[in-house]
Design a protein around this nucleic acid. Sequence first.
DNA 1: CTATGGCACGGATT
DNA 2: AATCCGTGCCATAG
Length: 471
Amino acid sequence: MFQTHFQTQSLRPLTTAHLAQTMTLLSLTIDELKEQIDKELSSNPALELKEERRCPTCHRLLPERTVCPVCSRPQNAAPDEPVVFVSPREDFYTSTHVTDDCLADEQDYSPVSDDLPTFVLRQIAPELQVEDRKLAAYILAHLDEDGLLTIKPVEVAMYYHIPLSRVENVRKMIQRAEPVGVGSVSTQEALLVQIETLKDTMIVPDLARLIVSSGMHSLSHRQYAELARQFDVAVKQVQLAVKFISENLNPFPGRSHWGDMRQPSSSGVEVYRRPDIIISHLNDDPANPLVVEIVMPVCGTLHVNPLFRDAIHLATDENKDAMRNDYDRASLFVKCMQQRNHTMTRMMFCLVVMQKDFILNGEKHLKPVTRVSISKDLEVHESTISRAVSGKTVQLPNKKIVPLSSFFDRSLNVRTILKDIITQEDKPLSDSELVELLAKKGFEVARRTVAKYRSMEGILPAHLRRSISRA
DNA sequence: CTATGGCACGGATT
DNA sequence: AATCCGTGCCATAG
């Protein structure tokens, strides 16, 4: 029902080679795609990148059509249907990996958002020795989604064949940068660093420090009595110190700062990348229809250079085979690229129609959709959708960047409702009470599941929940 | 006895 | 075929 103005027939893969390459291209993220295109362009003279015209009114590049798909909507599209098209936006490309490029001073990348490593690196780059910069970048490249280090400092030192002390010096600088404590090896270290920096601006109870430095185990198990005995103070004192800790410190430095734009997926290494797809309102006016751009990392469209084809006939026999080969490769590449974009376009159209509420009104309104159902609507194999979704990110109209896979998250809506309930209700609710509240709103989940969701969102259990600071 | 986290199982998803 | 997710049961802390 959704393929109103998308013709599938003309783009069916013809050969197995075509199919295979389309599949690989489909699963590539935007950075990998650019890499692939660059490689192909530089190694194959038959391939050409043609700069296309811009739309006179909105200045978007016009890839395949002469009519701008955004300004002049296709006639057969209903007014509330989203416009989906492939958008060549090289200008949008910014370096997202932490490389030497990122370290160049005061460059304006105009990214939608920095990733966490870049964000930190910018702060400390000015005071860093030049030769320590790539060291810092390396360290920052190995943070988990909580902002903690995934490798040991010793390993870094061995990797670069430098003394451990040098690694630690750089690491100390990273830890002092915002978000404070990032780059720590453990939650304990993160907390200690935060305490040290807080000391400058406020009074830190000594007991809090003691508890963090030598009572972490008891703390995490909420054994307050044990702590009181260990430090020979009243339980009440311990509770006060714990309160201070939970209100002022954050064991997961990465979360407070970046939790908003990032979904806590446990494999979230790639989550900070710039988006593969951009969804926005035309001219950012909510009254206008949605515009969905499948971002191409190059400016213009790829096609086979017609001059090259003519030149084959003029070439010597010796060159002819090679040129023929180049030509075939180029045209295959172009076909595959079109196929890829075609699939992406159709999929996004389908997805945006179904998840319109989610895109406009937030995560609460996410409908549980499976990849299989989409594949049926589009009449493609489910693995095709899987590949198209995996690793990609989307920028929503509210400028948040989320992984495309969250469109298929079965429990995201329940989790956000849960978050809402917890932040709004002032009295700490137990898990089973939460189950009832959720049931009232029409979400049937088990008690155990609520507990899981809490830990996924980094929400503390009912005991230690007082006033959780949220930015 | 209640609240919660760990382990593991089954079914759905990829 | 491998993986992820929701859930049930059980142990443990308070």
